[in-house]
Design a binder for these strands. Structure first.
Lengths: 223, 223
DNA sequence: CCAAAAGTGTTCTATGTACACCCATGC
DNA sequence: GCATGGGTGTACATAGAACACTTTTGG
């Protein structure tokens, strides 16, 4: 079992995938198969076979959700004796944002994975609760200095939808006028000629400027 | 050689160690032993044997410099086909700050390592120049919202010495009065009753508040 | 015409920036 | 007594926070 320092530790790519459903921030989990963690859930992970780490994370997310292009960023590499009771394990963790409207429901059934709202998490195996907490911290932090919020929305969205996204993730109410001013001054989204009719006055639809994605990537602090 | 996806990739812990010598920010490098990278230098690295990643990085730094307790933080995990021409390699990179006065010169001789000023770097193997550039970016960034500067100084230091440290790392001149106000308001360092006599008026010696180390760790965005 | 959500500027506060002179010591 | 670095406060500019009413549609 854990005959330390004889064979190298196991190495896996682990992903924290967020989406927005029913006005809640949700994370993708899979049921644990290991009897040690019976009735617990885990962040999805897969053994590292080659060294294309980001591609491996993307491939894994595609298998689980059916979505190929996602916002993806390396989070941290966790390795510590005692993370896992019986084996030495190193997890390279990525985190990702997916707009709910691009998810394939079939993929979820097939993989046995499930989306959990952050307020209704099941028991998580190992240190996965810590990892998730850190991913959320980083997401909140990134939201403040870049405009990744739109990565969780469909291609066209209203400013109110975007603001609600921010409020959900940050866990606080924001001022409408200040929010609009800042987000527009950031120049990452732009108005389209279309409108959406709903209950009240129809809202202008916005989309992120396609060339702004590169800009967001350039602005990020993590390579 | 590179029969991909048959055996798992090689995994190493790599360290970017900064210190301050002769009014210059320096980084610790070792000469490459691999003939592919003849006459190039590298960031120190060692194969991963167990999964105590941070301890492994600390151990490596102690072997190279003789210093046991250092400021240490995980930087990023690099893995990409094409990083190394002949083998698949994943590097978990840490970065560290060491006060120059605690270095053991003997350790440097024994390991063949050498301190290079950032303005006079030799050719670096693989993507190590990128890694180093990112480590510097992160150091500069951290300096702005925490007060890690004192990690490069001896136990007792003057405010001018601390300011010069900041100026060196950030690469710009800072206003003396504003610097002092901010650094003291941050509450991370405290005056001692001692003074240092030098050329002009003797300067008060400061040290960081021992209980502030935990605070700095708590404030950091990376776990 | 009423309910429901969209849209829009200004004032105040706090934070950061620029800036110049006196002080204590060694030689 | 003079050269050298140490030490101190204030005015101004900029960024962020608080705040309330009018507009457009559907029912």
């Amino acid at each position: 079992m854990s005959d330390s320092a004889v064979s190298p530790p196991h190495l896996e790519i682990c992903v924290v995938v967020f989406t927005l459903q029913e006005s809640r921030l949700k994370v993708l989990l899979i049921p644990s198969k290991d009897p040690i963690f019976a009735d617990m859930w885990m962040l999805p992970a897969a053994p590292v076979l080659d060294c294309a780490l980001e591609k491996a994370a993307a491939r894994q997310i595609e298998q689980l959700t059916g979505v190929g292009e996602v916002y993806l960023e390396q989070l941290y590499t966790y390795g510590d004796p005692g993370r896992h009771p019986t084996c030495r394990l190193i997890s390279i963790v990525y985190f990702a944002l997916i707009p709910a409207d691009s998810l394939l429901p079939a993929a979820e059934q097939k993989s046995g994975s499930h989306w959990f709202a952050l307020e209704e998490l099941p028991r998580l195996a190992m240190d996965h609760a810590d990892i998730l907490a850190y991913a959320l911290r980083r997401l909140r932090y990134k939201l403040e200095y870049t405009a990744v919020g739109f990565e969780l929305l469909p291609e066209f969205f209203t400013l109110s939808e975007l603001q609600h996204t921010y409020e959900l993730i940050l866990g606080e109410k924001l001022d409408k006028r200040n929010f609009r001013r800042r987000i527009l001054e950031a120049g990452i989204i732009e108005a389209t000629p279309h409108r959406r009719s709903g209950e009240g006055r129809p809202a202008l639809l916005y989309r992120y400027r396609p060339d702004a994605v590169a800009e967001v990537k350039a602005r990020r602090l993590f390579p």
